[in-house]
Every structure is written in C-alpha cells, then in structure tokens.
C-alpha cells in the first residue's frame, strides 16, 4: 500500500490539523485564524470531490438499471436525467442564473417541502406506539405527554388555567434537569471521541477496524 494511503499517515495528518485548529481556537496567534480558515477551505475542496464520488455512485447504480430496463427503470431515468440537466445548467449558466434559480425554487423546494410533510404522519404513528401504556414507564410518558399536549392547546388553558402552570413546571423543572444531564453527557462524550481520534484509537473514519 502506498505510504499516503496508510493508516499511520492519515492519523498524522489528522493529529497535525486538529492541533492547529485547537491552538488557533484557544490562542490569539497572529495569522493563526488565516491558517485555520485555509485548512477549512481544504475541507470544502475535499467535500466537493466527495460529492463527485457520490454522484458517480448514483450513476453506477442507476445507469445499469436503466440500460437493462430493470425494476423501476423510470426512476433511474429521472435520477440520471436530473443530475445531467442540473449540472449542465449550473456549469454553463452559473448557479445564480434565473434558470438555475427557477429550477431550484420550483422543483427542489416543493419536493423538499413535500418530503418534510411526511413527517407529520410518521410522528402521529410514532406517538401512537409510544403512548400505549404497556408498563409504568410508558404510563408516565403518556400522562406527561397528555399534559404537555393540553398545555399547548389554547382551549385547555382557557378552561383550566392550571394547565399553564403544570406545563411550565414540566418544562422548567424535570424536562430541563433531564435535558441538561443528557447535554453534559454528550459534551463529555464528544471530548472523549475527539481525544481517542487524536490519539489514533478511534479508527472508524480510517476504514474501521476498531
């Protein structure tokens, strides 16, 4: 294996870059911010290449399916045609050109909105399954959930003003306490993962292997 593909080389690069970013974050060094922003710009360039690899993967999957008129070949056609069309327009006319913008606003936006709207249905079914009182834990969840839902409805507050106080208390005391515990754990976990990565122990991003 070439030296630049070796795990050790990747770990050294990770260590050097991370130390530079950390030092420039915590210490006021003349020109430090510039170095950090250059490094982050490299990241953006690498990201653009990663996007190209992703697009190639889409073609690798959908083109053969389209060629042999396999299952759902028409969706493969839409994927390939959309990529070619959008890429051509953006490269030839620029991403700020009215045609590019119109395509974005009239195709991507509504489709994203539609996809996002699915969430409402899935949240309902998730809530239905979560709120079945199967044991004491789910009974507590059901009770608290019901109180919070009532807290958020204007009519419940109008008829029983106490719901407002109960809801405020749930949010301000048990919810905030639990939430802060989780957040502290997450912050500490992030530091531990970062340190393990710096020391070359967390090798998930280097083709795995523990």
């Amino acid at each position: 294996m070439a030296w630049y593909k070796s795990r050790e080389f990747c770990q050294i690069v990770t260590l050097i870059v991370a130390i530079i970013i950390l030092i420039t974050y915590f210490f006021d060094i003349p020109g430090g911010g510039e170095v950090a922003s250059h490094l982050q710009a490299f990241g953006t360039i690498v990201s653009a290449f990663a996007l190209m690899v992703g697009v190639l993967n889409l073609f690798q999957i959908h083109l053969p399916n389209l060629m042999r008129k396999g299952r759902y070949w028409y969706t493969s056609f839409i994927v390939c045609a959309s990529i070619i069309l959008w890429a051509s327009i953006a490269i030839c006319l620029g991403s700020e050109h009215p045609i590019s913008r119109t395509l974005y606003m009239t195709v991507n936006y509504p489709l994203s909105g539609t996809a996002y709207s699915f969430t409402a249905f899935y949240i309902t079914s998730a809530a239905y399954r979560a709120f079945r009182a199967r044991n004491i834990d789910s009974f507590i969840l059901l009770t608290i959930g019901t109180l919070v839902i009532l807290y958020n409805t204007p009519i419940a507050n109008a008829v029983f003003p106490t719901f407002g106080d109960i809801g405020d208390w749930i949010f301000a005391v048990p919810n905030k306490a639990g939430f802060r515990g989780v957040v502290i754990g997450i912050a500490l976990g992030s530091v531990a993962v970062g340190l393990r990565t710096l020391l070359g122990m967390e090798r998930g991003y280097l083709r795995g292997g523990g």
Binding site: S190, V193, G194, E202, G204, G208, G210
Partner: peptide, 12 residues
C-alpha cells in the same frame, strides 16, 4: 463526533 460514532457501528 456523532458521525465518528456511527462509523464505528457501521464498521462492526
């Protein structure tokens, strides 16, 4: 850090 955790699980 979350992605790294996910990648470790993927590897396993």
């Amino acid at each position: 850090s979350q992605v790294l955790a996910g990648l470790s699980v993927l590897s396993y």
